[in-house]
Design a protein around this nucleic acid. Structure first.
Length: 645
DNA sequence: GTAGGGTTAG
């Protein structure tokens, strides 16, 4: 609370009262700073003011109107306060006074200014201050290097690091930490090991910051063995060192290793932090290790850590990716404080599950409560509209972006092409591409190509494919799409030509695989897989299922498979697609009535989609299938995507 | 006065 004082009462204030009044002021009272004018008449004692204000930004007003002149220590406190609170504007104001003060040549103060700009993300100004310094020390270099590395300007950081060495300054543990982060950011093993060598030479290998930075750097350079070795030999470890390694498993989608490390960490007496949990959930999300993720979630609840956005967002994403939309929703609504990523993640989860209407409703709720959407928000909601076939909504939201002063980028355009294509408005999609204000990319034409495959438009498909091949000749996806378009139109010669083209230019098709998690183990299947210990049983199971579903109406759709085989061979191949094997395996190894979740690394084929619908009816089980695009929930003979995918 | 670890989309 700012105590309201008028000039008359100020004059009669004792030094003591003045001191305590100013000390009790909060920066949040800044809007009421008009009242400060009342002080200006009585401030003569700068030291008293400095002490009383304790770096309080309220006094900026006094400085600005020349009512007081800070001393060196006061400048320092003000700059630090602006740095800590990220108050760039106030910092600039103090800076402009500082350059006219008699302290302007103090290196330590100039460093503090430099650091303030760097930490507030204004690297241009930080650089300008640095360049303008007549005298620099090692800290000046280190502050600028760390600023660059924290702004992801890794090349600048390392350039400066080299310059620093050339100039003859000795880096310290602070410098090494930032330099290693930059080398990791550039994924440059060569630069990283060079810096590593320098750390050893200077005797910093036992510093816990340097150690963690080394571990992190090597993981980012894909040198996991080296990272682990350094980690194991670290003399001093803390939770950050552990987190660096856990996070690496998160990035690589190695859920099981991450969880194992998590257990080791706890056994070693280290408390997991928000960073740890966040990384674990990301690891489980990316590897589909839902059961383990749930276990760690329970552990976090026990630990008493609050469900803040920082970690809740990752957890939400994990449940979404694992197919459990209900759990994702629970996390979302229990978050202590939602940030933009929370909203976007929830929208993504809805979109992935084909719950377009829910996504649209959530987006409207977001606007209602006054949360500012960003580009990603629109991408999520456009995607959701597209997957649910909500044409008008999608087009409306695309236009709405500009009202929020957001410029659609190429990814938004792709979604609109996809949206128009899915509902079969191919001509309109083509017109939309022609009228785009930005240059169409391979992704744009691939979206149109996929729509042509869906709606069996060979001519436009061939045209779109040509455009894709011009822009990106090495992607196998578009080749396969075109090949399939020709094959299902009976143009086998053309299909063969595309195949040949792929072979000649060395385009490889990613092998399809499906996997299913049962009791903490992940079982992976590829088509015609007979390597699994239960393969005989699995085949028999599927053949039994196939015969049963044929009785209730299943007709194998062979238009999706290799055109060069005869009908019977095609049907044969089709029957042992990886997702069918995974399904048979899951039915053999899970209790009746429980839902089954299967993941696939490419899009589900049309025949498997149909077969899964029949199986869900036959065995009265819910089957959840995640492909690269989205989730399919099969229940009672139909799919949540309403065959829209 | 200076340092290291996390999340949404594609």
């Amino acid at each position: 609370m700012l105590i309201s004082i008028n000039r008359k009462s100020v004059v009669s204030l004792s030094r003591r009262v003045f001191f305590s009044t100013l000390s009790s002021m909060q920066d949040s009272d800044l809007e009421e700073k008009g009242d400060l004018e009342q002080f200006s008449g009585v401030i003569h004692d700068k030291d008293l003011l400095r002490k009383a204000s304790n770096g309080n930004l309220l006094v900026l007003d006094l400085i600005d109107r020349g009512a007081m002149e800070p001393d060196a220590r006061f400048y320092m406190e003000l700059f630090k306060k602006c740095t800590d609170q990220g108050r760039l504007k106030e910092g600039q104001m103090v800076h402009s006074h500082f350059v006219n003060s008699r302290f302007q040549h103090y290196v330590v103060l100039q460093n503090t200014v430099l650091n303030m700009y760097a930490k507030c993300g204004d690297m241009k100004m930080a650089r300008k201050v640095f360049d303008g310094m007549t005298e620099r020390d090692m800290v000046s270099y280190t502050m600028l290097i760390s600023g660059y590395s924290q702004s992801n300007e890794f090349r600048e950081a390392l350039g400066l690091y080299v310059e620093m060495l050339r100039t003859g300054f000795q880096p310290n543990e602070f410098t090494f930490g930032s330099a290693l982060k930059s080398a990791g950011g550039l994924q440059s093993d060569a630069l990283g090991s060079g810096i590593h060598g320098a750390c050893l030479k200077c005797g910093y290998e036992e510093n816990v910051y340097v150690g963690s930075a080394l571990v992190d750097m090597y993981t980012r350079c894909k040198k996991m063995a080296m990272a682990k070795m350094i980690f194991d030999e670290l003399k001093s470890k803390n939770e950050v060192s552990w987190n660096a390694l856990v996070a690496a498993y998160g990035r690589d989608g190695e859920g099981h290793n991450a969880v194992k490390l998590f257990s080791d960490m706890k056994r070693g007496g280290f408390e997991p932090t928000h960073f740890t949990y966040s990384s674990i959930f990301a690891a489980c999300a990316n590897s589909g290790a839902l059961e383990q993720g749930k276990w760690v979630h329970a552990d976090m609840v026990k630990s008493g850590l609050k469900l803040i956005a920082f970690v809740g967002n990752t957890l939400l994403d994990m449940y979404g990716k694992a197919g459990s939309i209900e759990d994702a929703k629970k996390v979302f609504y229990r978050l202590v404080k939602k940030d933009i990523v929370s909203w976007n993640s929830m929208l993504t989860a809805y979109a992935q599950h084909g719950l377009g209407q829910e996504a649209v409703d959530l987006f409207e709720e977001m606007r209602r409560v006054g949360f500012q959407p960003n580009e990603i928000t629109f991408l999520c909601v456009l995607n959701a509209s597209s997957h649910a076939g909500l044409l008008d909504k999608g087009l409306y939201y695309f236009e709405l972006m500009r009202k929020y002063e957001l410029e659609p980028d190429i990814t938004h355009y792709v979604t609109i092409v996809d949206l128009l294509g899915r509902v079969g408005q191919l001509d309109r999609a083509q017109r939309f591409i022609r009228e785009m204000t930005i240059q169409p990319t391979a992704a744009i034409w691939t979206a149109l190509l996929a729509a042509c495959r869906m709606h069996k438009n060979m001519e436009l498909g061939a045209y779109a494919a040509e455009r894709v091949f011009e822009l990106d000749p090495h992607d196998s996806g578009p080749h396969m799409l075109l090949c399939n378009i020709y094959a299902s139109a009976g143009r086998l010669r053309d299909a063969a030509r595309v195949r040949r083209m792929m072979n000649e230019s060395g385009v490889k098709k990613e092998p399809a695989c499906s996997w299913v998690e049962i009791e903490n183990a992940i079982h992976v299947f590829v088509a015609n897989d007979d390597t699994h210990p239960q393969s005989e049983e699995i085949r028999k199971m599927w053949e039994k299922l196939r015969d049963e579903i044929k009785k209730i109406g299943y007709v194998p759709d062979t238009s999706h498979v290799l055109w060069f085989l005869d009908q019977q061979e095609r049907e044969e191949r089709l029957q042992y697609h990886s997702e069918k094997l995974a399904l048979a395996f899951a039915l053999l190894n899970t209790p009746p009535g429980t839902p089954i979740t299967i993941k696939k690394n490419i899009r589900v084929c049309g025949d498997c989609h149909t077969a899964f619908k029949f199986v869900s009816k036959l065995v009265s089980r819910e089957i959840i299938l995640r492909d690269t695009n989205r989730f399919h929930h099969f229940r009672g003979g139909s799919c949540s995507c309403r065959d829209y995918w």
